[in-house]
Design a protein around this nucleic acid. Structure first.
Lengths: 146, 146
DNA sequence: GCTTATTCTTGACTCATTCCAGAAAGCCGA
DNA sequence: TCGGCTTTCTGGAATGAGTCAAGAATAAGC
């Protein structure tokens, strides 16, 4: 796992100022993939109790804009952040417990990116979300069909 | 375009009570694909000025649960509703103006549904969102690269 | 060490969505 | 057609994630 110095270099690498809140936020996202903003604020405050939620929001936005983290937001969920960027992976979301898991692109490389025509849209990203039930909920729920 | 009587039959077909708000909401979703809740409230009130926003929310939820309409919510957007259900189509979202367009499944039938393995998830739906720029914004934006 | 531009803190605010309780209306059987 | 029951609608308030704004603090460059 990267140390604080690595976070600094990551920030400098994308021309972002190195501040304690940003380092902490970056570390929190790395440590807690798919965490929502509130969890990130909590994780950041474990190391920096004084950080305001606004600073976390702003840091997340800066990191997202810089491409160091990626923001995902399945329907009906709050914003979540993950550190896997650059690769073309997708997500599975459990309808019951909200668990999010990474999946590498389903049919090989990136077939979903080839939007056939797309009404003239210039597509730069294809986001795939698989909805279903996680192993835990799938087992637990198979008995109770209320 | 379906008439009010058809809406009634659609509601009865899914064992939902036929109420004027629901008929109006169903008609509004049919008439305005990808409309957000506020637009639907406005459209409904054109015919039924007295309808409360709560009734619209509740009707939309009932219609969604019954499968008559489908709720979509791209990241950073409010909830939107559409009437194309049952077919496996996806959406393109313009990053600039928020325009949403339907696209039939990219690579043919439904390749994205075959989530390779998926960590043991039992997948029941694959939602694909193509992010990019619509023809209008793509043309307009190519000149101004602020 | 100093200057400047950027970032953080504090606090209030927006607004989509939900919750609640009472009133109204639709559906079913007679 | 009518009564009873269940569900839905109305009206208002509340929730909560996210945003906005202004001044104070801080990091980067010289």
């Amino acid at each position: 796992m990267p140390a604080t110095l690595d976070f600094e270099q990551m920030l400098r690498g994308v021309a972002l100022r190195v501040t304690r809140p940003r380092v902490a936020v970056l570390g929190a996202v790395l440590a807690h993939p798919h965490a929502d903003t509130d969890s990130i604020i909590g994780a950041v405050r474990r190391g920096l109790p004084e950080v305001s939620h606004q600073a976390v929001y702003d840091s997340l936005q800066a990191l997202t804009a810089a491409g160091l983290v990626r923001r995902i937001q399945p329907a009906g969920s709050v914003a979540r952040y993950e550190s896997r960027v650059g690769d073309n992976h997708h997500h599975m979301v459990c309808r019951e417990c909200g668990l999010i898991a990474d999946v590498d692109c389903a049919v090989g490389d990136a077939p979903c990116l080839t939007a056939s025509d797309g009404n003239g849209f210039s597509v730069d990203e294809a986001e795939v979300v698989f909805w279903g039930r996680c192993p835990g909920c799938s087992t637990a729920g198979s008995s109770r069909s209320t």
